[in-house]
Structure formats: C-alpha cells, structure tokens
Amino acid sequence: MITVSSPVSGRAVGLAQVPDPVFAGSMVGPGTAVDPVRAPAAALAPVDGTIVSLHPHAFVVLDDHGHGVLTHLGIDTVQLAGEGFRVLVAKGDTVVRGRPVIEWDPAAVAAAGRSPVCPVVALEATAEALTGLADGREVRAGDTLFHWTSTATESEGA
C-alpha cells in the first residue's frame, strides 16, 4: 500500500468538484484535490520516487513499484506559461515524500483568472484501488490524501 500525501495545505475536495471536466470525470485517473490556502508555498512530493514528468504547473512522481502520482497546480495554469511558478527539481531527480518540488502562489493564480485547485491523481489506477480519500476537510501539506493499494498481481511481483 502506498500513502499519497497532500502536496499543499488547504481544503480537500473530491475530483468531482474540480472545475475541469477531464479531472472531474476522473479521465486522467482517480484521486482527490486540494483547494489550497491562498499564500505563496512550495508544492511537495506526494510520494517517494522519481520525477518522470515536470512542468512549471504540474509534475508526476513514479514510485519504485511503478505507481505514478500526478500533481497539477491549478486548472488551466498551463496558459500562464510558467509565470508565477519556480521549479526546484529536475526531471529524473529522486525525491522523498515532502520534498519541495515547485514554488507557486495560489492567490496569483486566482488573480490571473484561473482556479488554484490542485488535483492529485493516481495514474493508471482504478477507483477501487484507492482508500481513505480525503474530502471536505482541512489538510496540511504532507497530510495523507489517500492510500493506493496494490493489486494482487503487483503484490505477487514485488
């Protein structure tokens, strides 16, 4: 079982409440989201692993078992072309849960007319593989958002 931690502090909200049909419909994968505190902060790695995808507004950490976790900082923030984001790691870096990955300002994202809500998605997972999803409660960066249970096949191969 993998524990996925919140990359930011704020209020956990279900993916269905994310103002983007792709995330709201769990088309990228199941998970949850955090409506962040409106203050400059660093988004933290939600799991131990390797940075396999990195953009100013989003990153994916792949753990040692092949589980990828996507953290997306806001909605439609790709349109900001990196403005207001400062990347602190490089693609290929190994990170531990809680390591700062990107500095950003959710209030500036909101002022630019974008939603600062942060989906945290278990890539290539089934909804049934996730337990303890945080929803409707305050979380601090580093708090548990959900647990990702391995399938029997994954457990046998580990």
Rank of each mutant, 00 (worst) to 15 (best):
G84A: 08
P56M: 14
F146N: 02
P36W: 06
D76L: 09
A129T: 01
L73A: 00
L123W: 07
G92L: 05
R38C: 07
R86E: 14
A125S: 14
D48A: 11
L130P: 00
E128V: 12
T71A: 15
R114A: 04
D105E: 11
P119C: 09
V109S: 05
A33L: 10
V78L: 12
S150Q: 15
R137S: 14
D63M: 08
S115D: 15
L88N: 09
H55N: 10
T71S: 14
P30L: 08
H55F: 15
V101Q: 03
P100D: 07
I51L: 11
G142F: 03
D35A: 15
R97P: 06
P36S: 07
G92M: 06
A33R: 05
P46C: 12
S150F: 15
V61R: 01
T144Y: 06
T149W: 02
A90V: 05
V52Q: 02
F59W: 11
P36Y: 07
R99F: 03
E124L: 13
A81H: 15
G92T: 04
P30G: 06
V87W: 04
G132V: 08
G66M: 10
T151N: 05
V89L: 03
G132N: 10
D143C: 03
A108L: 13
P116V: 02
P56S: 15
D35I: 10
V47A: 04
